[in-house]
Design a protein around this nucleic acid. Sequence first.
DNA 1: TTGTACGCGTTATCAA
DNA 2: TTGATAACGCGTACAA
Lengths: 341, 341
Amino acid sequence: MNDSRAAGARLTIKDVAREAGVSIKTVSRVLNKERYVGDATRARVEAAVAALKFRPSQAARTLGGRRSFQIGLVCDNPSPHYVYEMQSGIRDRCEADGVRMIAQPYDRGSDRLLDDIEALIDGINVDGLILTPPITDRPAVLDLLARRNVRFVRVSPGAQLETSSSVFIDNRAGARIMTEHLIALGHRRIGFVTGHPDYATSIQRAAGHRDALVAAGIAPDDALVVRGDYDFASGARAGGQLLALDDRPTAIFASSDDMAAGVLAAAHGLGLHLPRDCSVAGFGDDALAGYVWPPLTTIRQPTRSLAWNAADLLLDPDARIDYRECPFDLIVRASTAPLES
Amino acid sequence: MNDSRAAGARLTIKDVAREAGVSIKTVSRVLNKERYVGDATRARVEAAVAALKFRPSQAARTLGGRRSFQIGLVCDNPSPHYVYEMQSGIRDRCEADGVRMIAQPYDRGSDRLLDDIEALIDGINVDGLILTPPITDRPAVLDLLARRNVRFVRVSPGAQLETSSSVFIDNRAGARIMTEHLIALGHRRIGFVTGHPDYATSIQRAAGHRDALVAAGIAPDDALVVRGDYDFASGARAGGQLLALDDRPTAIFASSDDMAAGVLAAAHGLGLHLPRDCSVAGFGDDALAGYVWPPLTTIRQPTRSLAWNAADLLLDPDARIDYRECPFDLIVRASTAPLES
DNA sequence: TTGTACGCGTTATCAA
DNA sequence: TTGATAACGCGTACAA
């Protein structure tokens, strides 16, 4: 096999066509897995492609055709771990179809977000987009995509579900189950740290928590619900606030694992013994659970699976709107313990 | 301003040229910031571009011209935080030049790595690549890029510095300073957790640690040096091993903050009081320091700055090989304390 | 300083 | 089932 591809001598379909003894259009057909290609012809072309290690030019495909084989991920930054898992899941699904994911970190609330999205549409000609919270629910973004007639799939949306396909977990049920777990351990005064209000998941998780309280006959107490922003620092603040209450909660449930880690840090800082003095639980993608002591009890959101399914919906040629729910897990660890009598 | 860009009606240079009353070539000149354009003409074209919100097709630019305005980041996965910071820093620099970063998580030791890189070269026509450890030192990758005549910049390389531009911090000095810090606190038996041997930084940091010991007249003790892999789990293992020694070290310095967090977890698991029973320090990008208790004392590697500088070198039209060193910080926190007498 | 004509490598259209 | 040819939207080379 001659691998001496001299620098500058770009390999084109023409070379493959010559090698296989067919027309360039036939090579194109094989490359695009079109029908109406003879088996023998297809085999010869595939052999030629492999022998030459031919890779079609994305630019030329995009320019000439209707597809660009590129999709965009518009992922704000809840946490580096979340971004990483989203990218990994989408990439895994894209590889199977020879599609490239265009991804970059976005700054929260960047003024240029809409511009960036238009750059993906006009500049890159993306075949579709995947949106994550909180962008997934931003009306301006949804309007833009509808106006420009761009396909997109939303991760964890909170409204306008009829607009696009979407993937999610049942955040409300997850939060309910975690709170039920805490109640079953004997806790009655349970602190709750909400997520950032721009995220639909914040509302859903708060509702699930309340569901469990009500079902157990525990009167929800607003003093035990503290606002957080889904990051470590806000969790530490909220934890400090809850633990400073005269009638301290015996357990705290944070709406993300970043915040739960913050609560742990606050508890440590107050010299509390965990989980004896206060049980801590979190809702998240299990990113941090391994890094804190004691390990967090969490509702595990399967971020990578959400991402894979989002890409799967986007790449599905049948364009109908579809919803896909992913299962979550309750991971019980040592950080939530039965109340001592 | 008429923003009614009907779906399907792509805007081209032609439209801008008509709007501005010039030829398409003149529009192209303005878009590419070429010289020899009259001020009045330039102003009119820029006004037309803005009015129409015109964005040139990346595909067409790539196909017709010599550049693709895209660079690739080939970043293996030391940690999600590292990947995130690398992407952010590179994106920041690229935005200024209207260049797009093509990034995706790579699986450690993926067989398809070389294929992926060739896909970036042949499929995307990248203008250049940025490599991070450990890929930054893989001979097969360096050979490929030399053979294909692709520009690239390396982050934290360990050898063959004459091959490309590169950016780095002084890992050896950083590790020396941290060890000096621990020695100054009175520690003589200092455990050391190495990084993964495929990373040049592992060797450099181990050397720096040893430098400080030797300079202080402390005989390096192989029993106190334990192999780690730069991740949390290996840090926990290594920490457990060091803390199980009959003559336990009074301080442990881990070659990454992920591993330092693992050491902390191991110490907690053994019921030790930190930093009284054992001082823990780390070398890293400060990703985890906020998430663990007590906060880690770290050498802070400015990952985002390294990334920015790598992109800066890559985008510099002057192709000469250049080295750029970024400053690091010693962040002293409560996790390293003076020995009690 | 500005404009014209051509080519980039692929897909789409239409004919064979 | 295959092939010839015309786009696609821009940059390049050269002419004006």
